[in-house]
Design a protein around this nucleic acid. Structure first.
Lengths: 210, 210
DNA sequence: TCATATCGTGAACGTTCCGTTCAGGTGAAC
DNA sequence: GTTCACCTGAACGGAACGTTCACGATATGA
């Protein structure tokens, strides 16, 4: 029963978005009573998000190649890929719904956002350990400057959300954050007073749009 | 009548959020018929966003001090300030609603987002003109790395949204984007091969959190 | 002065979906 | 063969949507 509900809900979500995934619609499609759904889930959004996670349980595989650029770019590209097409629309609608449903917001934070943040923070912390990223950087802000633009474009739709964005985001930020001088780890130290330690060539770097 | 509706809607929005601003509630509060509201606005979200803009017509004053850091930081701080307290909650709910209401999304883009983006892009373009920012940078991505984290925190609530965030965002990004060598404007040129042109002291820069 | 058009009104309507209640039915465990 | 956990259809009251109707007000202008 539980599976039937999740499958039906996921189908409806992908077909007609969150608006189509009403409790009564899900119940009818899953050939299940409304009461059964209410026995297991507290609200419509709750069913929807469970259905989404059920259908798209992306693994959060943390690559650790030793190259911050590559690892972060790969993570961001995977996220952008996960938001391609209907699943992206559904995620946007779930985030939207969460703005007026605190329980849904909480679920979204704990089951979607935080695992991914934890994985990405780990990458950054290893980079700090290797001296590739300044030790005094606020990693939570860095995270947001990497991830937020993806969600922002997904939600606002003011700019396209394509894979090459990942590389640009990482390059923009790391070039600023990368520890340039081995001695200076203070914010007031000028970047660029000596040659950067590591700047791995990224041959696939696309030309800049303007 | 029109004003009465907007005032009533804004009141309800700030008191009880988007959920409280129902058409019938607004009509009752404005002492106006439902029909009258439907004559002028196509949907609930439409009334709500008009009411929001009516109540919070922030001026988009573009400072041009000649210092990118200061100008951008001031812009971001003003945005963060505008999202403080109830107005921030309401904006989050409007963005949320826009995820399932294309007309509302369009209004949000054209009347809120784009004017602010245009102002900020102008600041960046002047900075490019002055040689403070690399000419090959993708300004639209830079914009997102500055602004998106603010909306992201507003909507996800995973991290606090305080004013000092503005300075960190700008510093993180500009240190990477800042044109370090006057000759090199190609992505492959190493940042930091010579001293940066301008790096105005920002004494109020807060210590980094981790 | 009076016809007319415009705009607003209250009241009611049908619709959809919510979340809940009720009176049963089925099947496995003990 | 009783009990219990779980499921069922059917119906309910409630909220809000968006619409329709018949009926004022008001002001324009012939």
């Amino acid at each position: 029963m539980r599976l039937a509900v999740l499958e039906a809900a996921a189908d409806l979500l992908l077909e007609g978005g969150l608006a189509a995934a009403t409790i009564e619609g899900i119940a009818a499609r899953a050939r299940v009573s409304k009461v059964t759904i209410y026995r297991w889930w507290p609200s419509r959004g709750s069913v929807a998000i469970d259905a989404y996670f059920h259908r798209f349980r992306h693994t959060i595989d943390v690559a650790d190649s030793g190259d911050v650029d590559l690892d972060l770019t790969a993570q961001l590209e995977r996220l952008i890929g996960a938001f391609d097409g209907r699943p992206g629309v559904v995620m946007a609608e779930l985030i939207g719904q969460a703005q007026s449903d605190p329980a849904l917001a909480e679920t979204l934070r704990t089951r979607w956002l935080e695992p991914r943040r934890a994985a990405a923070i780990a990458v950054l912390e290893r980079a700090v350990g290797r001296g590739q990223v300044r030790a005094d950087a606020d990693l939570t802000v860095l995270m947001d400057q990497l991830y937020a633009p993806i969600y922002y474009r997904l939600i606002m739709g003011h700019q396209p959300l394509d894979r090459q964005l990942a590389g640009i985001l990482v390059a923009d930020l790391l070039d600023g954050v990368r520890k340039c001088s081995p001695t200076g780890d203070d914010r007031s130290s000028r970047p660029g007073t000596s040659a950067p330690i590591t700047r791995p060539a990224r041959p696939e770097e696309p030309p800049r749009r303007t």
